[in-house]
Design a protein around this nucleic acid. Structure first.
Length: 199
DNA sequence: CACAGGATCGTT
DNA sequence: ACGATCCTGTGT
């Protein structure tokens, strides 16, 4: 399978997010098909980590497109983001859920023997299944051999809705449909908030 | 220097 | 509904 080129990511995160549905994330023997994503960008989005400026923690978010931005959430879970837009602009897509394509034994071991969609529905589970942490921030996702994103067929149907866990940002951006998911699978977290949309 | 809270998850 | 767990941003 071909690796997504750097140019794929040099676009608006909302567009990149929708295009990421159906693409594969590969790390070693583990291959996951992306089923749910969320877009974040600054300025104009108070939920974006860039809201209080460029820091050591969110530096990758402002960096060149096609790299990883991984941060620690609640002191426990790692969140994998794909950086979009050009250097100097803070924008990214959070990978929230996937289907299992390959590397079943490795994923089950890392996830504690969980079965079914609960294996990979939720951003913390994705990073755990892939075996990545904050040290993966800034790493290119278009270099064969490491953590890479590869081409894959888009879903037949697409769903959209408000982003999950953004209730503290009680502004207009709360209702922006910046969460996207495949309509063809049960491997999606919080299906209730989603409704069909056109590509 | 102290402290509050978070793009979550798994259990109660 | 709640606790785990740790780093950052903010305030004194």
């Amino acid at each position: 399978m071909g690796v997504l080129p750097r140019s794929f990511y040099a676009r608006d995160p909302v567009v990149v997010a929708r295009d990421l549905l159906g693409k594969n994330v590969r790390h070693g023997a583990v291959v996951l098909r992306i089923t749910e994503v969320e877009a974040y960008r600054w300025p104009g989005d108070t939920a974006c980590h860039a809201r209080s400026g460029r820091t050591k923690r969110n530096d990758a978010l402002w960096g060149p497109p096609g790299r990883a931005y991984v941060y620690l959430c609640y002191g426990l879970h790692h969140m994998l983001n794909v950086v979009t837009m050009d250097e100097g602009v803070a924008a990214a897509v959070l990978i929230r859920s996937c289907e299992l394509i390959d590397g079943r034994s490795v994923v089950r071991r890392r996830r504690g023997g969980v079965e079914g969609p609960s294996l990979l529905t939720g951003p913390g589970k994705i990073a755990q299944a892939l075996g990545i942490d904050v040290s993966f921030s800034h790493r290119p996702l278009y270099r064969q051999g490491g953590l890479v994103l590869e081409h894959g067929p888009p879903p037949e149907r697409m769903l959209a809705g408000p982003r999950v866990g953004i209730d503290y940002a009680l502004d207009e951006h709360r209702v922006l449909p910046w969460r996207f998911a495949s309509g063809d699978t049960k491997w999606v977290s919080h299906p209730a908030g989603l409704a069909p949309v056109q590509f």
